[in-house]
């Protein structure tokens, strides 16, 4: 067991956890942040994407102990003051979800791609969104409304720091 301290959704947390514990399990089981979903256990599906120091990672690929000192944002930390983040609002507005299981990971990936493209001064067009979503799978929607949602949010996200 090792003590781990992280800032999760703006709050400092410390837990003593096994060295083999995945970040996804740490978030779900230690902190009960169950909006991070486990879809495939093998870093393929993207349902467990969170932001680690501002960058999207699949939390089933990271060990909790390796995230000591890190800043983690999960889906639960995205809305501020009860107001949906533009990416969350866009998924709602565009019917960008059905069963909802991939949705939280899609949103975290969507926020990350908008931020990265903005920081690099690149245009996040539809083709780019489709390419960027290669690590997130959805079995329900056919991606049509997911892509529309990310496009809308990209237009609405005023500043690159909106994710954090």
């Amino acid at each position: 067991m090792t003590d781990v301290t992280m800032t999760v959704n703006g709050k400092a947390v410390t837990r003593s956890v096994p060295d083999t514990m995945l970040l996804s399990d740490f978030l779900r089981e230690e902190l009960r942040l169950t909006g991070t979903h486990i879809g495939c256990d093998t870093s393929q599906c993207g349902a467990c994407v969170v932001h680690l120091d501002g960058k999207a990672v699949k939390s089933c690929t990271a060990l909790a102990v390796a995230c000591d000192g890190a800043r983690v944002t999960t889906i639960e930390g995205l809305a501020t003051g009860g107001v949906l983040h533009p990416m969350q609002k866009a998924f709602n507005d565009n019917h960008g979800l059905q069963c909802g299981f991939c949705t939280t990971g899609m949103i975290m990936t969507g926020v990350d791609m908008v931020n990265r493209y903005r920081a690099a001064g690149r245009t996040l067009d539809e083709a780019a969104i489709r390419h960027e979503l290669e690590g997130n799978i959805c079995r329900c929607t056919g991606y049509h409304n997911i892509v529309k949602a990310i496009s809308q949010a990209a237009a609405e996200m005023a500043a690159p720091q909106a994710a954090e």
């Binding site: 909006g35 991070t36 969350q88 709602n92 979800l97 909802g100």
Partner: peptide
């Protein structure tokens, strides 16, 4: 919208 849409986009709709 889907009745759980807000729950899904906020991660608060439990499975």
């Amino acid at each position: 919208p889907h009745e759980s849409a807000v729950g899904h986009v906020t991660g608060s709709a439990p499975y």
